[in-house]
Design a protein around this nucleic acid. Structure first.
Lengths: 66, 66
DNA sequence: TCCGGATGTAAAATATACTTGACAAACCCT
DNA sequence: AGGGTTTGTCAAGTATATTTTACATCCGGA
């Protein structure tokens, strides 16, 4: 299932997937797969994404799986 | 750096590392390394640990790295 | 109409999370 | 003292997160 919260938070900051990828230190594809869901990122990566978007873990990554 | 919040939450539930490992579906060693810090677990594993301990991501995994 | 930016996706390679099996030290408890 | 449980750690293997390269599509603007 897609991670809509991440998508919304990124749009809210007017960042492209590439922008967020650069800010988080990963590739565009990795961000894309996380937003597309069915992907299992690392805690450190989640934290970097949170900081890049001024959000917390719960705000972006809580309960987007069954 | 150690993850003291995880250690505390586990003690609060009177669970051993083995207990938590079984509840989260991983090995005792993996739990041990997460508590010891300098380890980078997967988001799905973090979520399973949270549910096993009745905690949220922020409560257990927020900002225990520099 | 065409070009650039944004996104979806895929295969192969690399880095690393996680397992398995094992041994040792520390701590209760009796 | 001795046995059981808990925890720290290590080496080798397997699973998977992430990269790299690449091609295709969609869309807004010149």
């Amino acid at each position: 299932m897609k991670n809509l919260k991440l998508n919304a938070a990124r749009a809210e900051k007017d960042m492209s997937q590439s922008d967020l990828a650069a800010a988080a230190g990963v590739t565009r594809q990795t961000i894309g797969m996380i937003e597309a869901g069915d992907y299992n990122p690392t805690l450190n990566l989640c934290l970097r994404i949170c900081r890049a978007l001024d959000k917390t873990l719960d705000e972006l990554f809580w309960e987007e799986e069954s």
